[in-house]
Amino acid sequence: MQISTQSRLLLSWFGLSAVTLLAWWIGAHHGTGPLKPDLAVAFGAIAITAVKVRVILREFMDVRHAPARLRHMSDALLALFIAALTTAYIV
């Protein structure tokens, strides 16, 4: 089944908004008292961000219709960034 580009953009916006609310829930439900380091929250935030950035690139910026080199380069750059961020958090 094909959907129109406008419907696809609307679905992307819904999805991005929904995961933003999920990130809010993750950030807000951190228990009581002072904030503490939390590996699950940090990795959850980074993972949600990776998904959001990829959806913005693919759907809003139309990278999914772009030549293969731009598609692959954007995916490689995002993967490299997430790896660097995760490493900076772990070390």
């Binding site: 933003t20 990130a23 809010w24 993750i26 950030g27 951190h30 904030l35 503490k36 380091p37 939390d38 929250v41 940090a42 935030a45 980074i46 949600i48 961000t49 959001k52 950035v53 913005i56 690139l57 809003f60 910026m61 139309d62 958090y89």
Partner: peptide
Amino acid sequence: VETCATYWHMVDFLWVIIFALLYIMR
């Protein structure tokens, strides 16, 4: 028009990362 939109989307995705790092990460 597409060039202008590309710039604005960059502003959006940079904020998405700033939001996660400044407000959510623990």
